[in-house]
Amino acid sequence: MTGIRPTGDWDGSTFAHEGFTFRTDRELIDRVVPFVAEGLSRGEPVLVVAGDRVRTLLADELGADVSRLAAFTAAENWWRGGHDTLRAYDRDLRVLHASVPTWRLVAEPVWLGREDGRKWSRYESVANRCYAELPYYSLCLHDAERLPATVLEAVARTHPLAWAGDAPVATPAYQDPQQFIRSVQPAWGERPRNAAVLSVVNPREARHGVQAWLADAWEARADDAVLAIHELVINALRVSAAAELACWSEADRLVVEVADQGPGLPDETTGYVPPGKTQEGGRGMWLAWGLADDVAVAPGGTGARIRLYFSR
């Protein structure tokens, strides 16, 4: 393994994000073990969060060095849904940033193999923007024998770096976070003719309107829908005299749209970014995105138009 540069030209001052796809145990070991060894030799905290099989392989290869790791944790215990998982991840990153100058992470998001975990790719994408100034290297592991082809395609589009055999290189398929998110959100089409539509000038009207629309079939999601729409209407009324609500059901999902005549969303990724303690904006979108099962933002046009999707 002479000539291997596990982190290439990374100088430890900014975020580096690599998507490593492997098919064999040997490929995994040859990539991860030098990465860990380099970090330990430099005195950097090294954290490993991976599935049981990967941790077993690494424990055998690393031997006594496992005790030198800052963390060696089961990834299976981390999944709490996209928003809650990212919230916990963000909290731990901020703690590290306050205590050490730089660090490196080996992470296997095992939940990408589950249907409810595949939206994690959106959070992986947004991480490139919201963690750009954090000084750590994230080596994300993806088992090509276990994950669907669509997930592996998303890995290439959400990670700026890939492994070239002796050093990381730029990923040709990488996309800007906003572009990636637009490509994977629900397709934006015309409202159905039977959609209920209401113009509101305060959040109270919005709450009452949504509650009136929700029949018994959606009672279980009523609280989530009302709170999410409340937050988006507050945002809309900051930039527009009135907000327009629309509500309908499709394919066993409740859809609620909030539209305004303001300047539009300056950053469509905001709802995927945990708001900082001193951050003034973005909390309403973060809350709404977490309450809904899916979200879509209209491409272009006047003002902002957001659709929230709720499953039964």
Rank of each mutant, 00 (worst) to 15 (best):
G300E: 06
W286V: 01
A292N: 06
W286A: 14
Y309A: 05
T302P: 11
T302N: 12
M285V: 06
R283K: 11
T302L: 07
D293E: 02
G282Q: 06
G303Q: 06
D294A: 13
L291F: 01
T302W: 01
G300Y: 15
W286E: 06
A298V: 10
G281I: 05
G290T: 14
S311L: 15
G282D: 04
E280Q: 06
S311K: 15
G284K: 05
W289L: 15
G300Q: 06
M285W: 08
V295F: 07
M285Y: 10
R283H: 09
R283L: 09
D293K: 03
S311Y: 14
G301E: 05
G281Q: 03
R307A: 14
P299C: 08
W289N: 12
E280W: 14
L308W: 15
G282E: 01
L291Q: 02
G300H: 09
R305F: 00
L308T: 01
P299F: 08
A304Y: 12
E280H: 10
M285C: 01
Y309I: 05
G284P: 09
G290Q: 08
G290S: 14
W289V: 07
D294E: 14
A288K: 04
P299H: 14
L291Y: 07
R305K: 15
P299I: 08
R307Q: 02
G301T: 09
M285P: 00
R305T: 15
P299S: 08
D293R: 07
G284N: 09
I306C: 05
W289T: 15
L291T: 02
